[in-house]
């Protein structure tokens, strides 16, 4: 016989996969909003994106508002 019950195990630490996934989200998001100057879309659209700075314009106001250096 066996029975199931719910117990709480709170060992400090994070599963590796969660750590990697969340660290990636952190770096990616910080780069896009705080630092990107049009590099990201250039992968898709080529050099033209550098001139248009799509992401930069879209994240521009938040960059100022959140305290990141800008223009």
């Amino acid at each position: 016989m066996s029975y199931s019950k719910e117990i709480t195990v709170s060992k400090s630490g994070v599963p590796k996969i969660a750590l990697v996934a969340l660290a990636a989200v952190f770096v990616f998001g910080l780069f896009v909003v705080g630092y990107d100057q049009g590099h990201l879309f250039s992968v898709v659209f080529g050099e033209q994106a550098f001139a248009d700075l799509y992401i930069h314009e879209l994240t521009h106001d938040m960059r100022h508002a959140a305290g990141f250096p800008c223009h």
């Binding site: 998001g29 910080l30 909003v33 705080g34 879209l58 994240t59 521009h60 938040m62 960059r63 508002a65």
Partner: peptide, 13 residues
Amino acid sequence: GQILAGAILGTSV
């Protein structure tokens, strides 16, 4: 873009 950038930055932080 404020909303979208807020969502991206918020998810990141």
